[in-house]
Design a protein around this nucleic acid. Structure first.
Length: 223
DNA sequence: AACTTATCCAACCGCCGCTAC
DNA sequence: AGTAGCGGCGGTTGGATAAGT
């Protein structure tokens, strides 16, 4: 491996620690769990291997298509892409891309069907939803992003106990109208297989895998 | 059977943005 | 305003294993 492999005992200790203290505070995890690992190793091991509901094994055809589609839109934003593939980790997606898809696309390009490199990668805007580091590494600010920022500044978002973003009720209508105006609603539910879309539309989205933050992101992607 | 090469993927590294002080 | 500490991310490495010769 590219490092020292985790033992079963270490896995057990880490799992126990997360169950007891919860995720986050990774700097304390090595101490609390009694592990001779750095915070990053613990976090990675949990996120990529020990976390519940991680899907292993081959990628389904639909998943592959989704990866290709999202990569076209997002570039190498593996965590965002993985976020749209339930049970898959960013590392999995990245590895799969590097091992399979990049070669496949290169082969296609080498043949008589050049793959257009003239795709404008849309960078999701760092707004006050979910992860604070959506916008990273001095990426440029496109007109799309500016528009999104403006729109974002009008939509104050709140967070539930789990840190998931939610739009306050009074703004849901505005956002839905905005989505609807652009004809995105139908595309989203169809093209992105938006689970729980009805629930969200009915204002019951908080328990769903998808919430308004996801919708906003998807809206960005379709602009 | 022995050796070489290719592939896969878990783990590590370095950097970035955010936050608290 | 400056900075240290943290969580998080994408890129890279390298060991294990499969496939080929």
């Amino acid at each position: 491996m590219g490092g020292v492999a985790w033992t079963e005992e270490e896995d057990h200790l880490l799992k126990k620690c997360i169950q007891q203290y919860g995720e986050g505070k990774w700097h304390r995890v090595p101490l609390l769990a009694g592990l001779n690992r750095c915070r990053k190793s613990c976090r990675l091991r949990w996120l990529n291997y020990l976390r519940p509901n991680i899907k292993r094994g081959n990628f389904a055809e639909e998943e592959v298509e989704m990866i290709i589609k999202l990569h076209k839109l997002l570039g190498n934003r593996w965590s965002l892409i993985a976020g749209r593939l339930p049970g898959r980790t960013a590392n999995d997606v990245k590895n799969y891309w590097n091992c399979h898809l990049s070669k496949r696309l290169n082969a296609l390009e080498a043949e008589d069907k050049p793959v257009s490199r003239d795709v404008q990668v849309i960078r999701p805007q760092a707004r006050n939803i979910g992860s604070s580091s959506v916008k990273r590494r001095g990426e440029g600010e496109s007109p799309t992003e500016k528009a999104v920022q403006q729109e974002s500044s009008m939509s104050s978002l709140t967070f539930d106990a789990d840190g998931h973003n939610q739009v306050v009720e009074s703004q849901e209508d505005n956002i839905y109208a905005c989505l609807d105006q652009q004809g995105i609603v139908n595309e989203l539910s169809m093209d992105f297989q938006l689970e729980g879309f009805e629930e969200i539309m009915n204002g019951e989205g908080s328990g769903s895998q998808w919430d308004w933050g996801d919708l906003l992101l998807d809206m960005d992607l379709y602009k």
